[in-house]
Nucleic acid binder design. Sequence first.
DNA 1: TCACCATTAAAACGTTTGTTTGAAACTGAC
DNA 2: GTCAGTTTCAAACAAACGTTTTAATGGTGA
Lengths: 223, 223
Amino acid sequence: MESDTRSRILDAAENLLVQHGLDGTTLRMITTAAHANLAAVNYHFGSKEALIEAVFRRRLTWLNQQRIAALDALETEARGAPLKPRQIVESFFGVAIRMAAENQGGRTFMRLLGRIYTEPSEFVRSFLAEEYAVVIARYKAAFFKALPDVPQEEFLWRFHFMMGALSYAVSGPDALRILGPIDDTDPEALYSRLMSFLIGGLRAPLPEIHSQPVKKPRAKRAA
Amino acid sequence: MESDTRSRILDAAENLLVQHGLDGTTLRMITTAAHANLAAVNYHFGSKEALIEAVFRRRLTWLNQQRIAALDALETEARGAPLKPRQIVESFFGVAIRMAAENQGGRTFMRLLGRIYTEPSEFVRSFLAEEYAVVIARYKAAFFKALPDVPQEEFLWRFHFMMGALSYAVSGPDALRILGPIDDTDPEALYSRLMSFLIGGLRAPLPEIHSQPVKKPRAKRAA
DNA sequence: TCACCATTAAAACGTTTGTTTGAAACTGAC
DNA sequence: GTCAGTTTCAAACAAACGTTTTAATGGTGA
């Protein structure tokens, strides 16, 4: 019988981590919220770091599997033909947005993931890189096949920018309050808005890089 | 004579905060790095929170003043005519990117700012909102004048997405390593890349929001 | 030289941190 | 009912935290 104390702790930790950060969240806060004993964390997970890793792995593995499955489906349907850039972007970011929209837990996790992504903590990056490795490779390949004339580097940068936009998109009402009163209660609208923005950014004309010789004098459409 | 212990502490804190976060950075780490006594922080700033606030205010006020000055210059030149959306975006984000490109301190600060922006800590948001209030109002107005048919809400969301992209753009090599080896040593190239992306996202067709009645059945160019 | 002020220094303050301990409580199998 | 194995519990651990205190230091004007 899978102890449900374990998952109560995971849920509580997820909620508190997104609210107070990695170091700001204490084991006592977590165990109190989970109605568990303080020692339960070290018993079930071994250490605080191990708990944090478990919080991320629990949903991130599933998320990236969904992404790969989505890409598989697209590629099967395409029968070897290159995918449209829009399809690729939608499958990658759509899974994330959908996860954030479906239930409160997914929403919390996506916020947490967006926050953690830029955290330079070494133990975080080690398992993040591990979790992302295969999915990034797959999407990189799909993209290069779709747009062979767009330099890999250019795509990676845009992908990176898109991750930033996604992170802020799910960051919750806290960050938004700085800009003034905005309604963020409609996940469907958020999905549409973010997708428009991402596709627009992705298809923007390639920049002219002045630091090194540019092949074509005129900027051209990327997609 | 302005104590230079004070500014040594500010510099050290800036560097350590971006690396370890707000709670992960201790006063002992800061004072050691600044070659100052532990008590110096409480003497010069009063508390750890006050120090953090000083770290942000030192550069953020200047940054937003630059933004307002840039907008002033544009509007003077336009003589009452609406600005181009591209000009507005370039003046807002260009200042930031330029700050990150000019020296190591500016680069560190922009990374720190991008990280802190989504932090739901109350004391952080209170002075962040205060610092951003006027500049946001000015840019909101300029934008509404430039694109009167684009709903305010739509613009705010896109602005928010753009902030996310900027945050990740300056987030440094740490986050990038997840995507694989990318060269981020060229600030000029980064500027061009981000600008292309932002303008592309900004000018994307308005999304169709299905949750509520949409005025126009066909998506139209936002700019 | 003296007194005055701002700054630095070392030491200690009470809390809180993650972790460990050893006993108690519970579980299912025989 | 007993016993092994798992899980929970209260209590304590050393270490590190932000802050405070008190004394020493260094320079400036009278």
